[in-house]
């Protein structure tokens, strides 16, 4: 074990890519470092840390395009909560960021870090999944980033599919259709702050003539990877929201997820609570339509 570490602090993307091209030793990427700092043995052994929060493009980019926004991966949750455009267009993302850790954590922790860390309990992951977020992976090859979705990047708890020279550069969020979207995000934890979630649920949907036109559902902390509940989504599409349909959807979601028992919660609790959260969200939506 090394008793000291090297910190590489590139100032822009070009320098970062250049460093990665030349780097011949294993390195760990850090941004807010809120997770790795509590695992001292892990970062001390890592030896070399590459600080992404010094990379100007990654900490400061917020580009508004005609169909979506591009966010630098090293923006902090506080940044995301404060941007008016994100509050307006992606209230569900702001809500999930608000529920992470505490103000002190939100000031440091980053959206890209939440993704790369690949924890099934990462609070923004179900939200990014229902928002159809597109991850832009560096380094640029012929000026193009590799594009990936949230469920593609995560291969298991704490594991992502990135190569040693790859990092998350930007997160692209397409604007959800503006007409009357319904959104719901709820996190269940030991307490409101500083809790790692036992379970979370994100729902985004649109109705047409009292029927569900499109719905996207993703639960967090219920499987080794973040995946949308496609079967439940399918069951609900084109349905009219009534108590029978809601009940059926909850049962389907409970079948579809594969939660485990760990220090934070049990298989049974997670399963039944996921069903209840879906019931709660859909009932709220049904009432809102009236």
């Amino acid at each position: 074990m090394t008793d000291r570490i090297d910190i590489i602090s590139p100032v822009n993307l070009a320098q970062l890519d250049h460093i990665l091209e030349k780097l011949r030793k294993p390195a760990t990427y850090v941004a807010g470092a809120t997770d790795i700092m509590v695992q001292k043995s892990r970062w001390e052994q890592a030896g070399t840390l590459i600080d992404l929060r010094t990379v100007q493009e990654l900490v400061s980019t917020l580009e508004i395009g005609p169909e979506g926004i591009l966010i630098g991966a090293a923006l902090s949750f506080t940044d995301i909560i404060r941007y008016r455009i994100i509050q307006e267009k992606f209230p569900i993302l702001v809500e999930s960021c608000r529920q992470i850790g505490s103000v002190q954590i939100q000031n440091r922790a980053t959206l890209g870090g939440n993704i790369a860390n690949a924890s099934p309990a990462g609070d923004t992951l179900p939200v990014l999944a229902v928002l159809n977020a597109e991850l832009w992976i560096g380094p640029r090859l012929k000026d193009n980033f590799t594009k990936m979705s949230v469920d593609e990047i995560m291969t298991g708890p704490g594991k992502n599919c990135l190569q040693p020279n790859q990092y998350i550069a930007y997160i692209y969020l397409p604007f959800p259709e503006p007409t009357d979207p319904f959104w719901y995000f709820r996190k269940v934890g030991q307490r409101y702050s500083m809790a790692i979630s036992k379970l979370s649920l994100a729902v985004l949907g649109w109705k047409h003539n009292n029927h569900i036109r499109e719905i996207r559902i993703c639960a967090g902390s219920v499987s080794p990877r973040i995946k949308r509940a496609v079967l439940t989504e399918k069951l609900l599409s084109n349905q009219e929201l009534n108590s029978k349909v809601i009940e059926k959807a909850a049962t389907q979601l409970m079948k579809e997820i594969k939660p485990i028992t760990d220090i934070r919660s049990t298989h049974n609790y997670r399963k039944s609570t996921a069903g209840r959260l879906l019931q709660e969200s859909l009932s709220t939506w049904a009432r809102a339509g009236k």
Partner: peptide, 28 residues
């Protein structure tokens, strides 16, 4: 691209300036 800023930008602004900052460059 239209860059929007949150109402508190001190740290952001600071980091941007860091690009040309003497010590920032030295560290890099």
């Amino acid at each position: 691209s239209e860059k929007k800023k949150p109402h508190s930008i001190s740290r952001r602004k600071f980091l941007k300036n860091l690009g040309s900052g003497v010590v920032g460059t030295t560290v890099a």
